[in-house]
Protein backbone atom coordinates (compact mmCIF):
# COMPACT_ATOMS: atom_id res chain seq x y z
CA UNK A 1 0.00 0.00 0.00
CA UNK A 2 1.28 3.46 -0.95
CA UNK A 3 2.01 5.60 2.07
CA UNK A 4 3.24 9.11 2.77
CA UNK A 5 7.00 9.24 3.27
CA UNK A 6 9.04 11.95 4.98
CA UNK A 7 10.63 12.71 1.63
CA UNK A 8 7.42 14.39 0.47
CA UNK A 9 8.04 17.23 2.92
CA UNK A 10 11.69 17.78 2.11
CA UNK A 11 11.30 20.84 -0.09
CA UNK A 12 13.08 18.92 -2.84
CA UNK A 13 12.11 17.24 -6.06
CA UNK A 14 9.95 14.58 -4.40
CA UNK A 15 7.88 17.25 -2.67
CA UNK A 16 7.43 19.28 -5.86
CA UNK A 17 6.35 16.20 -7.79
CA UNK A 18 3.94 15.30 -5.00
CA UNK A 19 2.39 18.78 -5.00
CA UNK A 20 2.21 18.96 -8.79
CA UNK A 21 0.79 15.48 -9.30
CA UNK A 22 -1.41 14.98 -6.25
CA UNK A 23 -2.36 18.27 -4.61
CA UNK A 24 -2.74 20.73 -7.49
CA UNK A 25 -4.87 18.45 -9.74
CA UNK A 26 -7.29 17.92 -6.86
CA UNK A 27 -8.38 21.57 -7.08
CA UNK A 28 -7.73 22.72 -10.66
CA UNK A 29 -7.28 26.39 -9.79
CA UNK A 30 -5.00 28.46 -12.04
CA UNK A 31 -3.85 30.66 -9.16
CA UNK A 32 -2.83 27.60 -7.15
CA UNK A 33 -1.25 25.96 -10.18
CA UNK A 34 1.32 28.74 -10.45
CA UNK A 35 2.95 27.31 -7.31
CA UNK A 36 4.22 30.67 -6.11
CA UNK A 37 5.18 31.39 -2.52
CA UNK A 38 2.05 33.52 -2.36
CA UNK A 39 -0.87 33.74 -4.78
CA UNK A 40 -1.82 37.10 -6.26
CA UNK A 41 -5.58 37.57 -5.91
CA UNK A 42 -7.81 40.13 -7.61
CA UNK A 43 -7.54 43.55 -5.95
CA UNK A 44 -3.74 43.51 -5.63
CA UNK A 45 -3.85 41.14 -2.69
CA UNK A 46 -1.29 38.43 -2.07
CA UNK A 47 -2.25 35.44 0.05
CA UNK A 48 -0.14 32.64 1.50
CA UNK A 49 -0.19 29.96 4.16
CA UNK A 50 2.44 27.87 5.90
CA UNK A 51 2.59 25.36 8.74
CA UNK A 52 5.43 25.04 11.24
CA UNK A 53 6.42 21.75 12.87
CA UNK A 54 10.04 22.51 13.77
CA UNK A 55 11.72 20.19 16.25
CA UNK A 56 12.92 21.40 18.74
CA UNK A 57 10.49 24.26 19.30
CA UNK A 58 13.24 26.41 20.85
CA UNK A 59 16.59 26.66 19.09
CA UNK A 60 19.56 29.06 19.08
CA UNK A 61 18.42 32.27 17.43
CA UNK A 62 14.69 31.64 17.56
CA UNK A 63 11.71 29.44 18.24
CA UNK A 64 8.65 28.11 16.45
CA UNK A 65 6.79 31.40 17.05
CA UNK A 66 9.39 33.64 15.45
CA UNK A 67 9.67 31.16 12.58
CA UNK A 68 5.91 31.07 12.03
CA UNK A 69 5.73 34.84 11.54
CA UNK A 70 8.91 35.31 9.52
CA UNK A 71 8.29 32.34 7.23
CA UNK A 72 4.92 33.69 6.15
CA UNK A 73 6.16 37.29 5.99
CA UNK A 74 9.04 36.23 3.77
CA UNK A 75 6.78 34.31 1.39
CA UNK A 76 4.83 37.54 0.87
CA UNK A 77 7.95 39.71 0.45
CA UNK A 78 9.46 37.52 -2.26
CA UNK A 79 6.12 37.47 -4.06
CA UNK A 80 6.20 41.24 -4.35
CA UNK A 81 3.78 42.07 -1.52
CA UNK A 82 3.97 44.17 1.64
CA UNK A 83 2.92 41.84 4.49
CA UNK A 84 -0.07 43.20 6.42
CA UNK A 85 -2.21 40.68 8.28
CA UNK A 86 -1.53 37.24 9.65
CA UNK A 87 -3.74 34.51 11.07
CA UNK A 88 -2.56 32.16 13.77
CA UNK A 89 -3.61 28.52 14.10
CA UNK A 90 -2.25 26.70 17.15
CA UNK A 91 -2.32 22.92 17.56
CA UNK A 92 -1.20 22.14 21.08
CA UNK A 93 -0.34 18.78 22.56
CA UNK A 94 -1.83 17.96 25.93
CA UNK A 95 0.94 18.40 28.49
CA UNK A 96 2.78 21.26 26.79
CA UNK A 97 4.26 23.45 29.49
CA UNK A 98 2.38 26.68 30.04
CA UNK A 99 5.64 28.65 30.23
CA UNK A 100 6.69 27.35 26.82
CA UNK A 101 3.40 28.49 25.29
CA UNK A 102 3.70 31.95 26.84
CA UNK A 103 7.24 32.29 25.62
CA UNK A 104 6.14 31.36 22.10
CA UNK A 105 3.25 33.85 22.21
CA UNK A 106 5.65 36.62 23.25
CA UNK A 107 7.93 35.64 20.45
CA UNK A 108 5.06 35.67 17.92
CA UNK A 109 4.17 39.17 19.07
CA UNK A 110 7.75 40.44 18.88
CA UNK A 111 8.27 38.99 15.40
CA UNK A 112 4.97 40.46 14.19
CA UNK A 113 5.89 43.95 15.48
CA UNK A 114 9.30 43.76 13.88
CA UNK A 115 7.83 42.75 10.52
CA UNK A 116 5.00 45.27 10.91
CA UNK A 117 2.20 42.76 10.53
CA UNK A 118 -0.85 42.32 12.71
CA UNK A 119 -2.17 39.01 13.94
CA UNK A 120 -5.88 39.41 13.32
CA UNK A 121 -7.46 35.94 13.36
CA UNK A 122 -6.76 32.72 15.15
CA UNK A 123 -7.74 29.26 16.20
CA UNK A 124 -6.67 26.86 18.93
CA UNK A 125 -6.94 23.07 19.14
CA UNK A 126 -5.57 20.69 21.74
CA UNK A 127 -4.78 17.07 20.87
CA UNK A 128 -4.14 14.16 23.23
CA UNK A 129 -0.64 13.49 24.44
CA UNK A 130 1.28 11.54 21.79
CA UNK A 131 -1.03 12.64 18.98
CA UNK A 132 1.03 15.74 18.23
CA UNK A 133 4.46 16.95 19.29
CA UNK A 134 4.23 19.87 21.76
CA UNK A 135 3.04 22.57 19.35
CA UNK A 136 2.37 23.00 15.64
CA UNK A 137 1.56 26.43 14.20
CA UNK A 138 -0.15 27.46 11.00
CA UNK A 139 -0.01 31.05 9.82
CA UNK A 140 -1.70 32.52 6.77
CA UNK A 141 -0.75 35.95 5.54
CA UNK A 142 -2.21 38.71 3.44
CA UNK A 143 -0.14 41.41 1.78
CA UNK A 144 -0.54 44.35 -0.55
CA UNK A 145 0.94 43.64 -3.97
CA UNK A 146 3.51 46.26 -5.02
CA UNK A 147 5.23 44.32 -7.78
CA UNK A 148 4.97 41.12 -9.78
CA UNK A 149 8.03 38.92 -10.13
CA UNK A 150 9.04 39.04 -13.79
CA UNK A 151 11.06 35.95 -14.64
CA UNK A 152 10.22 36.47 -18.33
CA UNK A 153 12.40 39.60 -18.41
CA UNK A 154 15.48 37.75 -17.15
CA UNK A 155 18.36 37.93 -19.67
CA UNK A 156 21.94 36.68 -19.92
CA UNK A 157 24.26 38.92 -17.93
CA UNK A 158 21.71 39.51 -15.16
CA UNK A 159 23.30 38.81 -11.78
CA UNK A 160 22.37 36.65 -8.83
CA UNK A 161 22.68 38.32 -5.44
CA UNK A 162 22.58 36.24 -2.27
CA UNK A 163 21.66 38.34 0.78
CA UNK A 164 23.81 36.50 3.32
CA UNK A 165 25.54 33.34 4.49
CA UNK A 166 23.90 29.95 3.88
CA UNK A 167 22.75 27.22 6.19
CA UNK A 168 22.81 28.69 9.72
CA UNK A 169 19.19 27.76 10.34
CA UNK A 170 19.73 24.09 9.46
CA UNK A 171 22.89 23.95 11.54
CA UNK A 172 21.23 25.64 14.54
CA UNK A 173 18.46 23.03 14.44
CA UNK A 174 20.95 20.18 14.14
CA UNK A 175 22.95 21.53 17.05
CA UNK A 176 19.86 22.02 19.19
CA UNK A 177 18.84 18.43 18.51
CA UNK A 178 22.26 17.13 19.48
CA UNK A 179 22.30 15.09 16.26
CA UNK A 180 25.69 13.70 15.28
CA UNK A 181 27.02 14.84 18.68
CA UNK A 182 27.45 18.20 17.03
CA UNK A 183 28.33 21.23 19.09
CA UNK A 184 28.56 24.56 17.38
CA UNK A 185 27.94 28.10 18.43
CA UNK A 186 25.60 29.05 15.66
CA UNK A 187 22.38 31.04 15.62
CA UNK A 188 19.52 30.50 13.22
CA UNK A 189 19.32 33.23 10.59
CA UNK A 190 15.54 33.42 11.12
CA UNK A 191 14.55 37.02 10.28
CA UNK A 192 12.02 39.04 8.29
CA UNK A 193 13.10 39.97 4.78
CA UNK A 194 10.94 43.11 4.67
CA UNK A 195 14.10 45.19 4.12
CA UNK A 196 14.11 43.78 0.57
CA UNK A 197 10.71 45.29 -0.33
CA UNK A 198 12.10 48.61 -1.69
CA UNK A 199 14.22 46.71 -4.19
CA UNK A 200 11.14 45.65 -6.11
CA UNK A 201 11.08 49.30 -7.22
CA UNK A 202 14.73 49.14 -8.26
CA UNK A 203 14.34 46.72 -11.10
CA UNK A 204 14.77 43.43 -9.22
CA UNK A 205 13.22 40.83 -11.53
CA UNK A 206 12.79 37.91 -9.20
CA UNK A 207 13.49 36.88 -5.61
CA UNK A 208 13.01 33.84 -3.43
CA UNK A 209 13.69 33.16 0.21
CA UNK A 210 16.01 30.21 0.68
CA UNK A 211 14.16 27.65 2.75
CA UNK A 212 13.89 23.86 2.47
CA UNK A 213 15.93 22.48 -0.40
CA UNK A 214 18.47 25.28 -0.12
CA UNK A 215 19.95 27.60 -2.73
CA UNK A 216 20.55 24.82 -5.29
CA UNK A 217 16.94 23.64 -5.27
CA UNK A 218 15.52 27.16 -5.45
CA UNK A 219 17.74 28.18 -8.37
CA UNK A 220 16.97 24.87 -10.14
CA UNK A 221 13.31 25.84 -9.96
CA UNK A 222 14.15 29.21 -11.53
CA UNK A 223 15.90 27.48 -14.45
CA UNK A 224 12.56 25.83 -15.28
CA UNK A 225 11.01 29.26 -15.82
CA UNK A 226 13.67 30.89 -18.00
CA UNK A 227 15.26 29.90 -21.33
CA UNK A 228 18.85 30.38 -20.06
CA UNK A 229 21.17 28.43 -17.78
CA UNK A 230 22.38 29.86 -14.48
CA UNK A 231 25.99 29.75 -13.31
CA UNK A 232 27.07 30.15 -9.70
CA UNK A 233 30.61 30.43 -8.37
CA UNK A 234 31.41 28.25 -5.35
CA UNK A 235 34.10 30.67 -4.18
CA UNK A 236 31.71 33.62 -4.08
CA UNK A 237 29.08 32.00 -1.85
CA UNK A 238 29.22 33.48 1.63
CA UNK A 239 29.52 30.82 4.34
CA UNK A 240 30.13 31.19 8.04
CA UNK A 241 33.07 29.28 9.49
CA UNK A 242 30.71 27.10 11.53
CA UNK A 243 28.66 26.03 8.52
CA UNK A 244 31.80 25.45 6.49
CA UNK A 245 33.34 23.25 9.17
CA UNK A 246 30.16 21.31 9.91
CA UNK A 247 29.53 20.68 6.22
CA UNK A 248 33.03 19.28 5.70
CA UNK A 249 32.71 17.14 8.80
CA UNK A 250 29.30 15.70 8.00
CA UNK A 251 29.62 15.62 4.23
CA UNK A 252 26.63 17.94 3.85
CA UNK A 253 26.54 20.41 0.97
CA UNK A 254 25.67 23.93 2.22
CA UNK A 255 24.03 24.59 -1.16
CA UNK A 256 21.20 22.34 0.03
CA UNK A 257 20.86 23.70 3.58
CA UNK A 258 17.87 25.78 4.62
CA UNK A 259 17.86 29.35 5.81
CA UNK A 260 14.97 31.33 7.28
CA UNK A 261 16.20 34.85 6.65
CA UNK A 262 18.09 34.80 3.36
CA UNK A 263 17.02 35.41 -0.20
CA UNK A 264 18.45 35.21 -3.67
CA UNK A 265 17.65 37.99 -6.16
CA UNK A 266 17.97 38.31 -9.91
CA UNK A 267 19.07 41.84 -10.77
CA UNK A 268 19.69 43.33 -14.23
CA UNK A 269 23.46 43.48 -14.84
CA UNK A 270 23.76 47.26 -14.85
CA UNK A 271 21.89 47.71 -11.56
CA UNK A 272 23.75 45.01 -9.66
CA UNK A 273 26.35 47.08 -7.87
CA UNK A 274 23.88 49.71 -6.76
CA UNK A 275 21.45 47.09 -5.42
CA UNK A 276 24.25 45.13 -3.73
CA UNK A 277 25.65 48.23 -2.04
CA UNK A 278 22.23 49.11 -0.67
CA UNK A 279 21.47 45.57 0.53
CA UNK A 280 24.81 45.52 2.36
CA UNK A 281 23.80 48.64 4.30
CA UNK A 282 21.12 46.64 6.10
CA UNK A 283 22.43 44.57 9.04
CA UNK A 284 20.63 41.51 7.59
CA UNK A 285 22.40 41.99 4.26
CA UNK A 286 25.92 42.76 5.44
CA UNK A 287 27.38 39.56 3.95
CA UNK A 288 25.45 39.84 0.66
CA UNK A 289 27.40 38.91 -2.46
CA UNK A 290 27.09 38.50 -6.20
CA UNK A 291 27.25 34.73 -6.50
CA UNK A 292 26.69 34.17 -10.18
CA UNK A 293 24.77 35.12 -13.26
CA UNK A 294 22.35 34.22 -15.98
CA UNK A 295 24.50 32.61 -18.66
CA UNK A 296 24.60 33.37 -22.33
CA UNK A 297 27.71 31.43 -23.36
CA UNK A 298 28.10 28.17 -21.49
CA UNK A 299 25.57 25.53 -20.55
CA UNK A 300 22.12 24.81 -21.88
CA UNK A 301 18.66 26.06 -20.97
CA UNK A 302 17.38 24.39 -17.83
CA UNK A 303 20.86 23.85 -16.40
CA UNK A 304 22.11 25.19 -13.08
CA UNK A 305 25.90 25.14 -13.24
CA UNK A 306 28.43 25.42 -10.46
CA UNK A 307 32.00 26.51 -11.04
CA UNK A 308 33.73 24.65 -8.20
CA UNK A 309 36.47 26.19 -6.09
CA UNK A 310 38.89 23.99 -8.05
CA UNK A 311 37.69 25.56 -11.31
CA UNK A 312 35.66 22.61 -12.66
CA UNK A 313 32.10 22.89 -13.89
CA UNK A 314 29.25 20.66 -12.84
CA UNK A 315 25.49 20.60 -12.77
CA UNK A 316 23.47 21.15 -9.62
CA UNK A 317 20.33 19.09 -9.23
CA UNK A 318 17.42 19.99 -6.98
CA UNK A 319 17.48 18.25 -3.61
CA UNK A 320 16.18 14.76 -4.18
CA UNK A 321 15.66 13.20 -0.80
CA UNK A 322 15.14 14.29 2.75
CA UNK A 323 18.16 15.79 4.44
CA UNK A 324 16.74 16.90 7.76
CA UNK A 325 13.09 16.42 8.63
CA UNK A 326 11.19 19.07 10.59
CA UNK A 327 13.53 22.00 10.30
CA UNK A 328 10.70 24.53 9.95
Amino acid sequence: MKKISLELGSGGKSMRDFIARTIVPAFKNPMLAELLDASHLPGRIAFTTDSYVVDPIFFPGGDIGKLAVNGTVNDLVVSGAVPQYISLGLILEEGLEWNALEKILRSLKAAASRARVEIVAGDTKVVKQGQGDKIYINTSGIGKVIAKPRPKLIRPGDKLILTGTLGEHSLAILTARGDFGLEARVQSDCAPLTFLLPFWKNGVLWMRDITRGGLATILSELTEKIPYPLLIEEDEIPLSKAVQAASELLGIDPLYLACEGRAVLVVPGEKTHDVLARIKKNPLGRKAAIIGQVEGKIGRPGELLLRTSAGGLRLLEPLSSELLPRIC
Binding site: E7, K13, S14, P229, G251, I298, G299, R300, E303, L305, G312, L313, R314, L315, E317, S320, S321
Partner: peptide
Protein backbone atom coordinates in the same frame (compact mmCIF):
# COMPACT_ATOMS: atom_id res chain seq x y z
CA UNK B 1 17.86 7.39 -9.93
CA UNK B 2 18.67 8.31 -6.33
CA UNK B 3 14.91 8.43 -5.64
CA UNK B 4 14.34 4.92 -7.00
CA UNK B 5 17.68 3.12 -7.15
CA UNK B 6 17.95 -0.22 -9.00
CA UNK B 7 21.27 -1.18 -7.42
CA UNK B 8 23.57 -0.28 -4.51
CA UNK B 9 25.88 1.97 -6.59
CA UNK B 10 22.97 4.45 -6.89
CA UNK B 11 22.29 4.21 -3.14
CA UNK B 12 25.56 4.61 -1.28
CA UNK B 13 26.85 8.17 -0.92
CA UNK B 14 30.17 6.94 -2.29
CA UNK B 15 28.60 4.65 -4.89
CA UNK B 16 29.96 5.39 -8.37
CA UNK B 17 26.51 5.74 -9.96
CA UNK B 18 25.20 8.14 -7.32
CA UNK B 19 28.36 10.26 -7.48
CA UNK B 20 28.30 10.35 -11.29
CA UNK B 21 24.60 11.26 -11.16
CA UNK B 22 24.78 13.88 -8.45
CA UNK B 23 27.86 15.65 -9.75
CA UNK B 24 27.50 15.25 -13.47
CA UNK B 25 29.04 17.88 -15.68
CA UNK B 26 27.24 19.95 -18.31
CA UNK B 27 26.80 18.34 -21.73
Amino acid sequence: TPESPCGPCMVSFEGACLVHYKYRGPK
